[in-house]
Nucleic acid binder design. Structure first.
Lengths: 130, 130
DNA sequence: ATCCCTGCAAAGAGTTTGCAAGTAA
DNA sequence: TTACTTGCAAACTCTTTGCAGGGAT
């Protein structure tokens, strides 16, 4: 896994320019502008390769299809479990401390890739009150 | 949504007795012992209802099917993005502080339901080194 | 030359839904 | 007697895979 392909490069370009956490489907639509002949399976395949290589990150959604993120800057996500909205936020967790806690509590080490907050956003909260 | 049914009760019973974060499929198999005629769609439907009611929690997995948890005690999860292993851990996050940070950073409030750490577990780490 | 890549079409996993009949309040 | 629930089967969404040909190293 690692020969150059213009399709993969186009996908990575899209990810670098997009900070809206697109789905595979959305990435496909965007890449079509540059590579009109690309197939959806190529998009899925390359997304997986880019995730594997650590170039992009997969967000573990509570609802709907997977979403992806290019990490231009280290950050975390808060995700609404009702509507799937994603909010970026920065510098809140002390990962070293967390690593130590984990090591202590689960008697096991773990490389922390990300920390995600799940909850209900303002918008969905007010909808429910009706 | 809220009439009694023995099927739903049986599912909740299974969840109360099981701390292995079962999938819908696993819950189905377990419930079959008590309710041999139950159908898989009833299991899926009731899992969703119990999540909606807040009786059980859905874990947002990085790989494989959704998993579910009965919260006998407040805790968080660390999930391996490679193999899907789940580790429970306790009392690490200060949710009030996090809520404040979120309110500040995303100019929006959010009810925090859970905080999940994603990473690579010891076991998968050593496999990759081969 | 060899291995990785592509597009296409088909298949797969996991989950939801329409329906007619049964049960709870 | 209305509204919720069930089992069944079919449908649906999202994603992966087999294949034959093309491109990269």
């Amino acid at each position: 896994m690692n020969n150059y392909s213009k399709q993969r490069e186009a996908i990575l370009d899209v990810m670098k320019q997009n900070r809206e956490h697109p789905t595979a489907e959305e990435i496909y639509t965007l890449v079509l502008e540059k590579e009109p002949q690309i197939s959806k399976s190529t998009v899925y395949r390359n997304i997986n390769i880019l995730v594997e290589l650590g170039e992009i990150k997969k967000l573990n959604m509570a609802v709907g299809p997977d979403r992806y993120d290019y990490l231009y800057q280290e950050h975390s996500h808060a995700i609404c479990e009702k509507c799937g909205s994603i909010f970026d936020f920065y510098d809140v967790f002390n990962k070293d401390k967390l690593s130590n806690e984990l090591l202590k509590q689960i008697e096991n080490n773990m490389d922390i890739n990300s920390i995600t907050i799940y909850g209900i956003c303002e918008n969905c909260k007010s909808k429910n009150k009706k």
